[in-house]
Structure formats: C-alpha cells, structure tokens
Design a protein around this nucleic acid. Sequence first.
DNA 1: CATGGCGATTACATCGTTGTAAATGGGTCG
DNA 2: CGACCCATTTACAACGATGTAATCGCCATG
Lengths: 337, 337
Amino acid sequence: MAARPRIKDVAEYAGVSPKTVSNVINNFEHVSERTRAAVQEAIDALGYRVNIAGRQLRQGRTGMITLAVPELDVAYFAELAKHVMAEADARGRTVLIHQTGAVRERELAALHGFDAQFSDGLILSPLALHPRDLATRDRRLPVVLLGERPAEGGTDHVGIDNVTAAREATEHLLSRGRRRIAVIGGAVRGRQGTDRLRTDGYREAMEKAGLPFEPDLVLPVDAYHWRDGARAAAALMERNPRPDALLCLNDHLALGALRALHDLGRSVPGDLDVIGFDDIEASQFSVPSLTTVAPDKHQIARAAVALLLERIEAPDAVELRDQVVGHRVIVRESTGG
Amino acid sequence: MAARPRIKDVAEYAGVSPKTVSNVINNFEHVSERTRAAVQEAIDALGYRVNIAGRQLRQGRTGMITLAVPELDVAYFAELAKHVMAEADARGRTVLIHQTGAVRERELAALHGFDAQFSDGLILSPLALHPRDLATRDRRLPVVLLGERPAEGGTDHVGIDNVTAAREATEHLLSRGRRRIAVIGGAVRGRQGTDRLRTDGYREAMEKAGLPFEPDLVLPVDAYHWRDGARAAAALMERNPRPDALLCLNDHLALGALRALHDLGRSVPGDLDVIGFDDIEASQFSVPSLTTVAPDKHQIARAAVALLLERIEAPDAVELRDQVVGHRVIVRESTGG
DNA sequence: CATGGCGATTACATCGTTGTAAATGGGTCG
DNA sequence: CGACCCATTTACAACGATGTAATCGCCATG
C-alpha cells in the first residue's frame, strides 16, 4: 500500500498549489467552484486525510478535547463520559478519555502531560488535586472542572449543589421517620471535597430536625466501590444501637450495602432505609431498587462542553464561571418508594 | 505566563545547540555527563516538555495507543479499559480511550480517523465491523482486535474461546438438571460474532446431552444492558412451558433478568437458574449473586498490549497471531453456588 | 610532530500544514 | 484605452522536533 498522501500530492493531482488545497479543506471562501470541485475530486481519488500533527504544529489546534475521570469502572463516570462524547460530537469535536485513578500525579499529568498537548481543552473530574496544583497549571490550556472543586483555582466549574442535595436526601429519610442515619463515604473534616460537602448537607438536615450530629455515624471509605459499601454497612450493623438508615455517597456504595444487609438478614426498607447518589443504571434494577440523588448528567455534560468550547474560542474574554446544574431525589424501593 | 518553552529556548539557556538538547531528551549515548547535566538543569529551570506534535511530525511516533470499545457503560469494557491502561502504563505508553457506540462508521473512524493518527497503534473491540472494512484498512496502523473477530482481516486477535465457554456454562446448567435453557442475547444465524459463537457453544452442549436445539429459546436483544435483559426475561416467562434456566450472554443482561424474575415472583435459583458472561464487579453483589463465565481480563489486556507493541516495533516481521486466553465458570448463588 | 580515530557536538534539512503577503488575471470605470 | 479593484491563486516561511552528515577537538599511534 502506498504511503499516505500529503497535501502536496493532492495539489499535484488537481493541478493547483498546496495552499489552494488547504483553502478547500478549510472552507476558505474565495475559492472558485471549479477549483473546489477539482480539489475535492483529487482528495477523494487519493483518499487524502489531513495530518493532524502537521495541522496542530502550524495552528495549535486539534479539534479534540480530553475528558479525565478518576475511574471508568465507577458507572457514574462511564455514563458521564457517554454524555460528554455525545455532546462534543454534536459540536464537531472528538473526545479523548483519560483515567486518572484518582491519583494526584495522574491528575497533574492530565493537566500538563501528554494528553493536554493533544487536545484543545480539558474536562477534569478531580479527586486528589490540591488547590495549588491548579494555580500552577499552564493557563494556555482551557480547563473545566467537574464535581469537586479544589477551592479557588481560577477555573471554570460545573456541578450540582452537593450540600443541598445531601440535605434533601437526608430530609427524605427523616420524613420517613428515620433518626439514626449513618453516612457511608462521608468526611467530617478535611478538604471541601464532594464527600465533605455532602456530609455538611447531611449535618444541616440533622440539626434542622433537632437531631444530634454524631461523627461516629460518618464512615469514610477507601474507594467508592461495591465492596467498600458492603464492608461499611456490615461494620455499621454491629453498632448498638444500629442505624436505621444509610446515606451512601454513591450508588456503588449503596448497592454494596444492600448486599451486605441482605446477608445479615436485614430487610430494606423494612428494617432500615438505604439511599445513594448518582442514579446509575444498576440502581433501577437492584433488589430492592435504589432510591438515589440523580444529578442531571446530561446537563452537566452539556454545560461542561459548552463552557470549555467558549474558553477555547476566547481564552481570556470569558469571565470565570461556576455553573450549578439540577438534581433530584428519585424515590425507589429502598426507601419504600 | 510566558509561552511554553521550545527546545531552542532550552538550548540557549544551557548554551548548547537544539540538537544536543534533543539528544539528551532521547538518551542518545554520546553525550558527556557535563552537558547532560547542564541540559537537564535547563529543562527543569524552564519547565520544558516536548511538543508531541513536533515530535510526531518528525518521527511519526507518539508513544500513545488507542483503545476503542463499543460502550464504556458496559462494565466489562470499563473494567477491561482499566487493565489495558495499567498494562500500557507499565510499558511506558499512554492510552487514549475511544467509544464507538457499536456503530460501524465510528469503528471505521477509529481505524482511519482522528484517533488513529494520534496513536502508534489501536486495540479495537469491534461489534459492527464488516470483514472487508478490515481488509481495506491502512496497513500502516498496527491493530489488535479483541473479542469479536470479523473473519479473516489479516489482523492480530485476542479473545477467549467463546464456543467452549458457552458450552461449559450450558453444561453447568445441565448438570444441575436444567433442560429448557433459554439464551438471552443469542443469535442463531448471521455473522460469526460473539453472540453467534456462544450460541453455537450452547447448541453443542444441548445436542451432546441429547436435548433438542430450539431456536425459539434463543432471544436476540437490541443492546446488552439491564433493561434488555429484563425485557427478554419477562417475555420468556410468558412461554409455555417456561424455561428453567437463562443463559445470558453478558452480566448486564443477566442482572436485568434477575430483577424481572424477582418482579414476577420467580425464585432464582429455586424456580430457575441464571448465568451470565463477563464477571463484572456487580455480579458478586447482586441478590442473588450471579454465576458467570469470567474471561481472564488481566490476561486479555496483557496479551493485547504485548501483541500491539510488538507490531509497532516490527510492523512486518511478526506473523499473524490469534491468542486465546483462559476463562472459567464462577459458580455463585444464581445457580445454587 | 603528523596522522588517524572516535566521541561529542553542531548545521542543515525536513516532516505536513497553514498564515502572510504578494502575484495573477479578468472586469469595471472614467 | 489605461488605471484600478477585487476575487482567486500562489510563493514562501514557519510551527517544534530530530535524522543525516559534517565538524570539532582530543588522544593514541607511528
């Protein structure tokens, strides 16, 4: 098979200059119909495709954006990725997905490293980043943060109102008469991460209901997977008195908890309630199905892509933005729905 | 913030030529310790990083490989992606993930389009590709296929023995006394896709056991998600006589089926058995937990990356290979385990 | 002391594309 | 009929890196 044709080959085939071919490719307006047709024919005949490296080197753009998430096997991120790709596609961009493993140096690599160079912008869902990591980032790469927001990094941000969401979830449990509500995956102190914000919302709801905030009922976890939820739920069931509801900070944790409770012979929602966050597809099909706080993923993806593209078009012109998207509590069987 | 430094800037800072800087970066052996140290210091001082577009333009390599899968929200692919990234990382490569949506033109785009240009090679898990699509691909891009293999495309391939795996799964059901075994997601005819191969394995087991192969018991599905499994299971329960086991061609289908059976008041494994494929994390935690055929994902990722890198190093030297990796049936509650 | 050899370094060209500025050529207007 | 305008096309250079081949400088050898 012959080597890949270059713009020069197309030019020779069509009997024009390389620049004219480039003009056709880039839809430059002052190209006669005749020439345009001839060039197009040459392109088709030779099977020409632009070389992105060449183009990027010259004009500094690739038409691609990168989405960096902690873990793809956390369904929330996989589903989000799907939405982002659809949204970017509709706007003529290609998405590269990168997985950071929630490791700080990998998140940094997304900001500075290989990936950053290939794309015109980055949508990053950080977990381990320090605020100052963002402060030192290369300003020439447009960035939109999702979910967590490491304080003021001077970076655009899209996310739900985590405090309110957690408060509402807790209020839902309270309205069902639950009083000893434990938080799986929560954080009492530390960075203003998602875990901390949601715990704050929980606390607000408890205190508003005149109930004590018991730090002992807030269990941190290593990761947000089924197994961690199962482990945490099992541990909580050894408490005396036992919790009568579990507020789990994502659906994986909640689903793992459901399984652990089943093994311990506890009925959900008979003996206790369980609620999650994210509304992943699995939550509709578990037994019992899972009540959960559903962020508007479609809206998050839409806003993230929109903000990023604006930044790319006008790196400085746009003022800093923090877009809050909607969420709602979807009541299912695990809280009697 | 200053513009990103170029190799020329580093050279001036260190008082050497650009080419010497390049030699240091690329570990060329004939560089004196003194110079190497000086250049390294300049690199650190300026925060220099190679521009990949420039490098790729010159030497045609990026150090990145692309993994293209149908859908990231199918947990199997998300888990596989994780393994591939780990494997590539260990070998100093970066992985770009691309989602094809199981759409033929998107799979083609992975072969020809943007992504292909950015990476030195492609690991593709095809679903909709025609054999001739592969035949016409650009031979200069090393490709390894996963799972499905569209006949002879002259392409390296890694996968499990689907026929044997399905036969073993069916035999497991038969050994438990099941006789009316339905296949959710199966295909009686058509391309030699995974669905077809697994259905063939099922058929082998049935016939070997002296049981009739009933095409009516093989239900195709639109997609491999929970909802499709739920729908299919509900439909099957209206048959008379009812199936006494469901062989689901992936775990999502099986988990959806479990939920539908629960709604219909059918006990698993009391009234019927359910078995899946893939061994995704969710399958350990469902109620009941799911018996499933577990492909060795780690091995698949390892083999795929190894084959691809060999191809990249020696595009022609390596003969065509088809690597079959192991699998095993993990018996859990859904078949009485 | 001249010569050769070799490690270290460098000048130059080039990868494929597109921005800049200039050239071309046909048509309009005075 | 000559000057000018403007749509169209082109020559040239440059983006950042590295391969090639040449050069430089030092040391061993005869």
